[in-house]
């Protein structure tokens, strides 16, 4: 590689491995959070919709509390809290746990909204042919609800990708912190922040595009 010393490309090339590693941390923590948040959020969303009253109240309480606290506070709380309770986890995992707590509440609320937006007639049509509750849920309600929950789910996913930058505050070297470490060496503030911005925009645009394609595939789900 023949690059002139002191140019951005030279510095970026020098820092390539740590930047790439930062990118991988951003991606892996996002994916991890989104998977955990989606699976558990789905369950909490169903409890929110169909759960027995005490469980429903608990789920509602959880969701409303999580949505009223800034993610950064959740992250710091989890990080310092786990440490003081002598539960030794790496900052990465403290961050993923905190982001997941946040993600769960958003997915749950989206799922509830989507499930409740399915007309009651769909349930009744299922009942009328003798289907039981979980059968109706599985074959009639959820396939439609998933489609409706997709757009808000994508929003949540984008929030999570952006939210992983907050892990830098507890010392997780994700993409943002990796860039800042590069900046600390070469002082190319604008260039490296610009580069980081472009990478985030590319990631988020790809997610949005993938979701749009998925949505087109489900176009037949009209009423």
């Amino acid at each position: 590689m023949e690059l002139e010393r002191g140019t951005f490309l030279y510095e970026a090339w020098t820092a390539r491995w740590s930047l790439l590693e930062g990118l991988m941390v951003t991606i892996s923590s996002s994916v991890m959070t989104i998977i955990i948040g989606t699976v558990l959020g789905f369950a909490v969303g169903l409890v929110l919709t169909y759960g027995m009253l005490p469980f429903r109240i608990l789920a509602r309480l959880y969701v409303d509390i999580m949505r009223g606290i800034p993610v950064l506070v959740l992250i710091l709380f989890t990080y310092y809290g786990l440490a003081i309770l002598k539960i030794g986890v790496k900052p990465y995992w403290a961050g993923v746990i905190a982001l997941s707590l946040f993600c769960i509440s958003h997915v749950a609320e989206n799922v509830r909204g989507a499930v409740q937006s399915i007309p009651q007639g769909q349930h009744e049509a299922g009942m009328a042919i003798g289907m039981r509750f979980f059968q109706r849920l599985r074959y009639i309600i959820l396939p439609q609800a998933v489609r409706r929950a997709l757009p808000p789910w994508v929003n949540t996913a984008l929030e999570i990708v952006k939210g992983t930058t907050l892990l830098s505050v507890i010392g997780v070297v994700e993409l943002l912190l990796a860039n800042q470490q590069a900046i600390a060496r070469n002082y190319m503030i604008l260039q490296f922040y610009m580069a980081a911005t472009i990478v985030y925009i590319i990631i988020n645009f790809s997610i949005a595009q993938a979701a749009a394609a998925l949505e087109r595939r489900y176009a037949y789900l009209r009423y």
Binding site: L158, K162, L166, Y200
Partner: peptide, 18 residues
């Protein structure tokens, strides 16, 4: 679109240090 797809923390640093 630029703002909505960029993490807020990055924007904060960008402006503050930039």
């Amino acid at each position: 679109e630029f703002i909505r797809n960029t993490p807020l923390l990055l924007l904060i640093f960008f402006v503050y240090f930039g």
